[in-house]
Simulated scan of single mutants.
Amino acid sequence: MRILLLEYKNTLQDVKEEIVQIDKLIEPIAKKEAAKKMTPEDGGQLLELRRIKSALNSDKANLEYAINWMKTGRQPDSYNGIENRKAYEHKSFPPSFFNQIESPVSGSVDEPIKGEAVEYLLKDLTEKEKDVFILVSLGHSMREVAEMTRSKRETVRRLYILAESKVKKRSSLI
Rank of each mutant, 00 (worst) to 15 (best):
L121E: 11
L135H: 04
K123F: 13
R158M: 12
D131H: 06
K123N: 11
I134E: 04
L122W: 06
K114H: 06
V118Q: 03
V145K: 06
L122P: 01
P112S: 11
G115W: 03
E154A: 07
L121N: 01
R153I: 09
L122T: 07
K166T: 07
L125M: 00
K128L: 00
T155D: 00
Y120C: 08
S172N: 05
S171A: 13
E144L: 01
R143M: 03
K168V: 10
A163N: 11
V156C: 07
R150S: 14
L122A: 02
I161L: 09
R157E: 07
E147T: 04
D124S: 14
E129M: 15
V167C: 01
V136T: 08
S165L: 08
D131V: 05
H140E: 01
S171I: 02
S141A: 05
E164Q: 13
K166C: 07
K166Y: 11
E164S: 14
E127T: 13
V118H: 03
K168I: 04
E111V: 15
M148G: 06
R158C: 05
T155I: 05
I161T: 13
L162Q: 13
A117N: 05
V156I: 15
G115D: 09
R158D: 06
E127K: 14
M142G: 00
D124P: 02
V118N: 10
K114W: 00
S172R: 10
R143N: 04
G115A: 10
A163Y: 09
T126N: 03
T126Q: 11
Y120H: 10
D124K: 11
S108P: 05
S165W: 00
V145P: 05
I161H: 12
V145N: 09
L125V: 04
D124G: 11
R157K: 12
L159C: 03
K168M: 01
E111M: 15
G139S: 08
E111Y: 11
G139P: 02
V118G: 08
R158P: 07
L135A: 04
A146P: 02
R158T: 13
M142I: 12
G115S: 07
K130H: 12
A117C: 01
H140A: 09
E127Q: 14
K114R: 15
S108V: 07
K130I: 01
I134F: 09
V156A: 04
K166M: 00
T149F: 09
D131Y: 03
E144N: 06
S151L: 15
A117M: 12
V136C: 04
Y160H: 15
K128M: 04
I113M: 09
S165Q: 14
S108Y: 08
T155K: 05
H140Y: 15
K168T: 05
K128I: 10
R170N: 03
E129Q: 15
K152T: 14
P112W: 08
V136M: 00
T149M: 12
S141W: 12
F133Q: 06
E129L: 11
A163L: 11
T149V: 05
D110V: 08
E119Y: 03
V109W: 13
T149D: 09
K169N: 07
D124L: 06
R150M: 12
V132C: 12
S171R: 00
L138T: 08
R158H: 00
D110R: 11
